[in-house]
Design a protein around this nucleic acid. Sequence first.
DNA 1: GTCTATAGGCGGATAGAC
DNA 2: GTCTATCCGCCTATAGAC
Lengths: 208, 208
Amino acid sequence: MSVAETSNERAVQILDAAEQLLGEKGYDGVSIREVADVAGVNKALVFYYYKNKKGLFARVLERYYQAHQDALAEAFTKEEGPLRERIHRMIDAYLDFIGSHQHAPRLVQNLLSRGDPEQLLHIQAQMAGLFRWMEAALRDVTPAEGMLSARQFYCDFSGLVVNYFIFAPVLGGLWGEDPLSETALEERRQHLHWIVEALLDRLLGGAA
Amino acid sequence: MSVAETSNERAVQILDAAEQLLGEKGYDGVSIREVADVAGVNKALVFYYYKNKKGLFARVLERYYQAHQDALAEAFTKEEGPLRERIHRMIDAYLDFIGSHQHAPRLVQNLLSRGDPEQLLHIQAQMAGLFRWMEAALRDVTPAEGMLSARQFYCDFSGLVVNYFIFAPVLGGLWGEDPLSETALEERRQHLHWIVEALLDRLLGGAA
DNA sequence: GTCTATAGGCGGATAGAC
DNA sequence: GTCTATCCGCCTATAGAC
């Protein structure tokens, strides 16, 4: 039942197609027929492997969050070093991951915007790992409660990174430049590092 | 054709119902039948006033962005004062507006996540006013280009405020506290003001 | 495991009476 | 302006042959 056990070739093709389409057109905008066509398999086979539409996209979500968490955790934990540096590495990893999975944030936001209680619970369960982990990572810099607690900064990081990609398609027309071009992404990266410095300075008063 | 001219009573009822439902269930999750039922009118009347589904929700978007921009502009422009104070007032206005239109950000994100080119262009057109205005408001604090330009901070503010509300339904379960309660919202407000101070300090070096 | 065929329902949209 | 009645297409899901 777990993602790792979904090893059959066709089953993975279906999952890949579902993830791509879900990011592009949203849950209600994608039909099983479409998923099957893109995956190059028959429609009925999708039901055979994933029971129903919800089951299919639940798996997509699980696979995505697992990869996401792995990416951040590796960047933060891997090489030891001053906390400040590790946070910067985490930001880079976050940007890189979303940059190479640009449909991912759209996918999550779309599921959120549908307001299905069952799916909300599922997203919550998937996010929990990431959130607990981030809380632990920031334990030494932030107080346990109040307006400077880790949970506030979790919302911040998430919003600062994700929002940029979510709005990229419309921002392009306003800027006259593609927000997803290499140079634009590099500018955003520098901006985020600048912000991290500003926040840490105020939080730590210039100390490590 | 404009929003202001949509003065007929029934037409407004339909628009209200559409806005609410769109925020709750997303574009593809709402049927015209549902809108008509909530509005207390006949299904065919929706088509009479708004031609088709896209037309209906295009109007919803226009009305929302108009109100949004008005709210921010009033807070920023109204009372003169140091730029720093005006920015803080703008943050407050942003939070207050979204707080009293909580379905609004979900509505926009949902339309974004559908990837319909026609709707993307429409969102872009509606956002343009807000964006140009924000650029002008920050003209004295930010350079015209580069990683500290106004467009970067526009993404920041937008993400910091909007993301909190978008994820509120899932955050509640992780925190064991409702992120939309008065005390939680007040904590978020203080956090955002703290961030603004941190950013302005670094940007201006403690001046103005 | 993989396919064909089809059931059964709901959605957007229109025609036309009042 | 407002309603009733209805068309037509697409969607999820299942039955059953191979």
